[in-house]
Design a binder for these strands. Structure first.
Length: 806
RNA sequence: GCGACCGUGGCGGAAUUGGCAGACGCGCCAGACUUAGGAUCUGGUAUCUUUGAUGUGGGAGUUCAAGUCUCUUCGGUCGCACCA
């Protein structure tokens, strides 16, 4: 069979007959399968794209054959840095390269033969889409969930531009090797932290991989503790966050993050130069480095002192880079006796170390002692346990107006502005009179101009485009300037799954009633690298829109599956720079898309992925030929016998156990084992040498139906030869008949002291006692047990009998 | 550094969730058919000193029973907030 030929033939027919059409009137059985849309970076799809889309499409087909009304849309996440960098390098405009890439990728995706609903397509860089991305921004802005503040960015002093983290290699700019510093710029943020608690709580509702939920949980990073206010001698006050208020009496110094605004105010003239030098050095250090616990601690004394509110003790104020301004209050208290990090720090700089907690059983007297225990040297709190002491101290501080209980999250607000060209413009106008003014919704979209100089020179590219920048204030009508920044592409991708359901709507981003029926997504499929960012942002936007009444569900993705990564043949991630990118095209041309797709599904665990190898692909081509031979042989058989004898019974057992297993495996994306089962059924059909032709025909029909989601074109062709109804996609997926799954006899393993001794075959309905007696009386067992006393017999029905004896 | 995950034949990978380790396939070996074979079919294929013993990165533990649970150790992969 010429597979590439029949693929073209069936694709044309399927398109003509519109067999994938989603039935908007049958919402009761809707099933929304969504693969994370792709970024049109390279010109072509690589094997990894196929590994994402092929198997998940097979899953969608499986659901369709189970009778669901399947919606499987596709689109492109088209804004972003790579297109812009490519443009800077080559001069090709991001819009041109992106649209061209989308065009090629669409063609390739169509050639795959997936059941995508192309009429629902979404492309994020088109004005009819980003208009609504801007709308989302405005709604959050109105709700007080979007705001501006200063924030540090990676800055290359030589290129004069903001760098993405991935453009910073070992602390230097990837383009010019200049040391990258951290610089404060005014940036837009979304207040995702307002939803921290709900984002955390609702994880329990989700059918997601446990590890992903755990990662989000950690990312949100809830910790309950308290805040303590320290008064600076002759100055302001500041608060520290701590989870160990019970150690408050042991504070021997406090530390501010080097970026803390108070540092300038409090630093004494003698310490000025040392502090300045330290702050400059900190600018060059990344947060990941700063948090490293193995790195030697460093810090500088500011010359100022603060008062510990609990005991009035005067302690020095230091700055140190292990304190992050972005977490907690940007200040911590140093308790060397009960914290490893503080202990090292105090030893290095000769600070006091006072023990204030003892182990409960007096067993451990070493410092630092980081466990909970019993409080000592803590005045009125002596003798309290750490657990009680924490609360008691915080309660007292609260009475004094110097602190209290506080829950802290590691989650930070989402920085959404980018000083880049290739993104959705931020729909805000800055007016000298009226200040920050949102663009009226009727004026959306704020269109991204084409003729922009996006060479990096220290400013947002849009700020240099006078035609774009100059506008009038919607409130007072005076000349005003547009915001020159664009939105993070994660904003575009945090609501696209809503637009799919209503992508042609010109009046609103989506119709509430429509999406309430279509959403949430029933099965979301994509890479695990999105565990924290995209998946968290999409959850946040969904909840924010819900609170504004635009939709009525709490979570966007009910069930989530991560596919693994297909690595290059060398075992490394595929990348152009390594030159290990595997293109599917030559394999698709040679073997056909069905063979290629099924090879990906059979040769790798879907969740694990692994290094590419084309060793097994021929095997799948051969397998297709074997199946084709079976069909052709079966077609020539004509007798109508359906008698079920021993041979038929055996084949029927394999048939129904295969069906059962395949159905189970498909649900959990265990495609490789599903295919292995189908191969076993194939082998059993080949071995069958009975003469009940009509029965055999039934089994063969089941075989091609089972295969249909994996090899849609091939099975459609075979189905036609067999005279089955068209299209095979509308057949119902085989369902196991339990009555054929019980066998008359079962084989059991017989073990002595857990070691395999022999195997026996017994009637499957044999009871425990009868079985025990039977086994013990077997001559082979008698022989083994010659000089032994039986202590116990363990029977696992259908599996084994273990005789414990000595 | 922090967090998550993984480690099973020559290879890709299974193992009903604590119950016969190595399903299915590749590769390899032998045979059949053949002028021919990179086609097809049949059989074999964890290791060893093979009446038996050993074996799931290494070491310990729990259990009648451990690839699976616990501890420890080594190695690898992914994420860490401006790549998407």
């Amino acid at each position: 069979m010429d597979l590439t030929q029949i693929e073209k033939k069936w694709q044309a027919k399927w398109e003509k007959d519109d067999i994938y059409a989603f039935d908007k009137n049958n919402m009761d059985k809707k099933y929304y399968v969504l693969e994370m849309f792709s970024y049109p970076s390279g010109a072509k799809l690589h094997a990894g794209h196929w590994f994402n889309f092929g198997p998940s499409d097979s899953f969608a087909r499986f659901k369709r054959m189970q009778g669901y009304n399947v919606f499987e849309p596709m689109g492109f996440d088209a804004f972003g840095l790579p297109a812009e960098n490519y443009a800077i390098k080559t001069g090709i405009h991001p819009q041109d390269s992106t649209l061209k890439n989308i065009d090629t990728m669409e063609k390739q995706l169509k050639a795959m033969g997936a059941m995508f609903n192309w009429d629902a397509e979404v492309v994020t860089c088109m004005p009819d889409y980003y208009k609504w991305t801007q709308w989302v921004f405005l709604q959050l802005y109105k709700k007080g969930l979007a705001y501006r503040k200063e924030a540090p960015v990676n800055w290359c002093p030589s290129c004069n531009t903001v760098l993405a983290n991935e453009q910073v290699i070992d602390g230097v700019c990837e383009r010019c090797q200049t040391t990258v510093i951290r610089k404060n710029l005014t940036q837009w943020f979304f207040k995702i932290t307002d939803y921290a608690e709900e984002l955390l709580q609702d994880l329990d509702k989700l059918d997601w991989p446990e590890k992903t939920k755990l990662m989000q949980k950690h990312w949100i990073g809830k910790s309950t503790g308290g805040e303590v206010e320290f008064q600076i001698v002759d100055g302001d006050s500041f608060r520290v966050f701590t989870t160990r208020a019970d150690t408050l009496f042991g504070v021997s110094y406090v530390v501010l993050a080097p970026e803390h605004p108070l540092v300038d105010k409090i630093t004494t003239s003698e310490q000025k130069s040392a502090v300045e030098e330290y702050r400059l050095a900190t600018q060059k250090t990344s947060e990941i480095e700063r948090q490293s616990t193995t790195r030697e601690k460093s810090g500088v004394f500011t010359g100022a002192y603060a008062i510990n509110p609990i005991n009035g003790k005067k302690v020095p104020i230091w700055i140190a880079d292990y304190v992050l301004f972005s977490y907690g209050t940007g200040a911590v208290m140093g308790v060397p006796s009960h914290d490893e990090r503080d202990f090292d720090f105090a030893n290095k700089y000769g600070l006091d170390i006072t023990r204030v907690v003892k182990s409960k059983d007096g067993s451990c007297d070493d410092l630092p002692y980081c466990e909970l225990g019993v409080m000592v040297n803590s005045g009125e709190f002596d003798g309290m346990t750490s657990e009680d002491g924490k609360l008691a101290i915080l309660k007292k501080l609260e009475e004094m107006g110097k602190g209290g209980l506080k829950t802290n999250y590691r989650l930070r607000d989402w920085l959404i502005s980018r000083q880049r060209y290739w993104g959705a413009p931020i729909p805000i106008i800055h007016c000298d009179t009226c200040g920050e003014v949102p663009v009226p919704e009727k004026d959306l979209p704020v269109e991204l101009p084409y003729d922009v100089d996006f060479a990096p020179d220290g400013k947002s590219p849009l700020s240099k485009h006078e035609g774009f920048m100059n506008t009038v204030c919607p409130i007072c009508g005076k000349p005003a300037r547009r915001d020159p920044d664009t939105l993070d592409t994660f904003v575009c991708s945090s609501w696209y799954f809503l637009r799919y359901a209503d992508n042609k709507n010109a009046d609103e981003p989506f119709n509430t009633e429509k999406i309430n029926k279509m959403l949430p997504v029933d099965k979301y499929i994509g890479g695990a690298e999105h565990a924290c960012m995209h998946l968290l942002y999409a959850r946040f936007i969904t909840k924010a829109l819900r609170d504004m009444g635009y939709l009525n569900f709490d979570e966007p993705f009910t069930s989530l599956v991560h596919q693994g990564l297909i690595l290059g043949p060398d075992g490394y991630k595929m990348s152009k720079s390594r030159g290990n990118v595997v293109s599917p095209d030559e394999f698709v041309t040679k073997f056909g898309s069905d063979v290629f797709r099924m090879y990906l599904m059979f040769g790798f665990s879907y969740v694990e992925g692994g290094p590419w190898s084309d060793d097994g692909i021929k095997a799948l081509a051969k397998y297709f030929e074997r199946v084709e031979r079976i069909i052709d042989n079966t077609c020539t058989k004509t007798n109508g016998k359906k008698d079920i004898g021993a041979k038929e019974k055996e084949l029927n057992y394999v048939r129904h156990s295969t069906i059962k297993k395949v159905n189970q495996d498909m649900e959990v994306f265990s495609f490789n084992t599903a295919i292995a089962r189908i191969m076993e059924l194939t082998n059993a059909i080949i071995k069958y040498d009975g003469d009940s032709d009509a029965f055999l025909k039934e089994v063969v029909f089941d075989l091609i139906d089972l295969l249909a989601p994996f090899a849609p074109h091939f099975t459609e062709e075979l189905n036609e030869r067999m005279g089955g109804s068209y299209p095979i996609l509308y057949h119902s997926y085989p369902v196991a008949d339990e009555k054929w799954l019980t066998r008359d006899e079962v084989e059991l393993a017989v073990q002595l002291n857990s070691k395999m001794r022999t195997r026996i075959t017994v009637p499957s309905e044999m009871g425990r006692e009868e079985l025990e007696k039977y086994v013990l009386e077997l001559p082979a067992v008698q022989e083994i047990l010659a000089n032994l006393t039986v202590r116990k017999v363990i029977i696992i029905p259908g599996r084994l009998v273990n005789i414990v004896a000595n």
